[in-house]
Simulated scan of single mutants.
Amino acid sequence: MSDTTASLRRQINIAGELQSVVRTMKALAASNIGQYEQSVRALADYYRTIELGLGACFRGNESAALMSTSEERVNDGAIGVIVFGSDQGLVGQFNDVITDYAIKTLADLPGKPQVWAIGERIHARLADAGLPLLGLFAVPNSVKAIAPLVGQIQIESETHREKGEYAQVYVFHNRPQSGSLYEPVSLRLLPLDAQWQKGLTHVRWPTGNLPEIMQSGTATLRALIREYLFISLFRACAESLASENASRLAAMQRAEKNINELLENMQHTFHRLRQGSIDEELFDVISGFEALFLEAVIKKQEAAVEAGKAEPQLR
């Protein structure tokens, strides 16, 4: 019995330590969600500025509006794909959801995908799915680390595009929703969508002054497109990180609930076993006392019989 209670005590201590770890991870995940969501909101004004600049370029030169598509070396045989996932576990179905969504979407697109994976976990799942992988990038661990990652992705992607390996570029990532929910989404970065370009030409300029493009309109357009691609990748990465931490927070909440239930069951079992052990010890004490008392009474009677002070009695 003592071995059983000692074992339960050790298990309770281990579960308590695990509970502390889970609570720490919950706090970190909640804190990270805030900083990544704030970074996405901070991009809104800058993204709006880039859209206004692109709209001005597209309105000023109709041929320039289609420059990004006309200059592409279209190759229907390959598609560049960037998939954002996670390096760490304890994120529930986060990587599985975006992997399944990417596989299903790519199956409906013409051309063979060439995939860049962001995160070791998503890299392993994409490899298991049989998708051809071009490379692997580490997931940034802070907002400051997103910009260097996006720069590396742009350099690698542009290098392969200039070699004519692919002309289209798609991005897949999870986007956060209310609470701990998220949804998989995709975006075609290149070539630029013609409807999107046309829509920007109708965006109203915020002031009464007409915009004027300085110096070369082509150079300005190229610079704005590079900024648009940078912002799109930055936002995709930040949204993916926010979704990852939201999924981890939900997973930790479920784990904490399970640990609390397990601790409660183990403590009830421990108290029951301990009470049973105490009752057994008390029963042994009472039984021993009764035996000693009966033995003392018998000895007293025997002594009385020997002394002739009492009649012999049957025992």
Results as ranks from 00 to 15, higher is better:
191 P>A: 04
192 L>N: 03
193 D>M: 04
195 Q>C: 08
196 W>L: 12
197 Q>V: 14
198 K>M: 14
198 K>Y: 10
200 L>F: 03
204 R>N: 12
204 R>Y: 09
206 P>S: 04
207 T>C: 01
208 G>Y: 12
209 N>P: 03
210 L>Q: 04
210 L>M: 01
211 P>A: 02
211 P>C: 03
213 I>T: 04
217 G>A: 14
217 G>F: 06
219 A>D: 15
220 T>N: 15
220 T>S: 12
222 R>W: 13
223 A>T: 13
223 A>I: 06
226 R>M: 10
226 R>G: 09
231 I>N: 13
232 S>V: 00
232 S>R: 07
235 R>S: 15
235 R>V: 15
237 C>S: 12
237 C>A: 14
237 C>F: 02
237 C>E: 11
238 A>W: 01
241 L>G: 00
245 N>P: 00
247 S>P: 02
247 S>V: 02
249 L>P: 07
250 A>F: 07
250 A>K: 08
251 A>I: 05
252 M>S: 04
253 Q>I: 07
253 Q>W: 02
254 R>C: 05
257 K>H: 07
257 K>I: 00
261 E>Q: 12
264 E>G: 03
265 N>T: 11
266 M>P: 01
266 M>W: 07
268 H>S: 12
268 H>Y: 08
268 H>V: 10
271 H>M: 05
271 H>Y: 05
274 R>E: 08
276 G>A: 11
278 I>T: 14
